[in-house]
Write a protein that binds this DNA or RNA. Structure first.
Lengths: 216, 216
DNA sequence: TAGATTGTTAATCGATTAACAATC
DNA sequence: TAGATTGTTAATCGATTAACAATC
């Protein structure tokens, strides 16, 4: 275990490792090398070894990594050995869709409350959750020790919702609204905006500018 | 206009510039400096100038950037001065939610067809679009000159769907399934998986490991 | 002219990859 | 022992930032 600062790039790869390791476990594979992982995940094996080595000596020279052990380690690194409660604000179509992921998230990461500012939405059911009004946000976050917020409200409400989440002590936000949130440095923001994503993909279509050019 | 290779980091910032510039335009602001842009978007002004300079000399020394002109330029760089057709595969909750973004995408980027492999879903209506069966995928992509595919099917179907999209000549894929797609190098893949995103956020909760520590 | 701001070069910082001794 | 594979150092590559001449 070193104590260098871990870069975001590394952190973003951890769930990817974890996901594939879980698949290996289901297939009852007990050992895997950085070589194999790299092949499967399209990453450089040295990078994988380096990533993992930030957190400890998890592998065995000449052998590779024990799948079950590594899963357990990454699980710990990602804080998934504790219950992590999540709140979702904005019960529109997207919010609805995301709350269905609860089943997949399992593993101690769970959306436990849904909020919406729109009066008629309040009280309606989303899966097992009842949509709550915004004025219950603060207390709910405090009482349920909610640590992550998901924002799926329209652009013009997003900053205000973020403010409320942060005031209530949330530590991290996943923002689906197409806006750069202004937040204090101790709050972690990840942008997950669909339209931005689509627009940047459009950049790569240059080849197709002339119609009916075939292949590369 | 230089012809260096543009990095993905630069490309991902272009839509963000564009978005904010559009807001300025709505507010009838006609000129903006890299300084102001940087402040608003949490970016280094030098980086913004450098990003834009890859594509041309869009600014005026001593003055800044003309908002309308720069919008037009970025619009062109992102290929949005042509119609870009998009197909969505997987008409579940998430697919449904995304197809609602069509209104926002406008600007020549549009989801024009939706597919699903599940028999009873076929023929149902999603907004203005009728869900089509998978065996019409190839011809539809060809006939409508569809260039981008969105994958919102379950993990175990994603690779196969990607193969079909690529075979039909799609140039870029936005993948919401939690799996690393194996694709030829000329196809651009962006991952947009919700669970991976959530897991990486969980990493940053370390502070909260001990309960009831207050603030930072 | 004085002040502002670009475009660009050079400096810095950080992330990825190659290489290899250690060792299972 | 021979072969495999890690953890880590050093080399490389790339992206960000600072600085400033050019110029509006």
């Amino acid at each position: 275990m070193k104590s260098e600062k871990i870069s975001e790039a590394v952190v973003r790869r951890l769930p990817i490792y974890w996901r594939y390791l879980s698949e290996l476990q289901r297939r009852e594979v007990s050992t895997v090398s950085s070589q194999e992982l790299g092949q499967k995940l399209d990453l450089n094996p040295a990078q994988i070894r380096k990533d993992l080595a930030y957190f400890g000596d998890f592998g065995r020279k000449g052998i590779g990594y024990d799948v079950a052990y590594l899963i357990e380690k990454i699980r710990h690194i990602l804080n998934l050995d504790q219950q992590i409660n999540v709140v979702l604000v904005g019960a529109g179509n997207l919010g609805h869709a995301l709350s269905n992921y609860n089943a997949y998230l399992k593993e101690n990461l769970k959306i436990v409350a849904v909020f919406d500012a729109y009066e008629p939405k309040v009280g309606t059911q989303i899966n097992t959750l009842k949509v709550q009004p915004m004025d219950e946000l603060y207390d709910t976050i405090k009482n349920h020790n909610i640590r992550i917020g998901i924002i799926t409200v329209p652009e013009y409400e997003a900053q205000q919702v973020a403010n409320q989440l942060i005031e209530a002590g949330i530590a991290a936000i996943l923002n689906f609204a197409p806006i750069i949130l202004k937040t204090p440095p101790h709050v972690r923001i990840h942008a997950a905006d669909f339209t931005t994503e689509m627009l940047s993909l459009a950049y790569y279509l240059e080849e197709g500018k002339e119609d009916s050019t075939d292949g590369e």
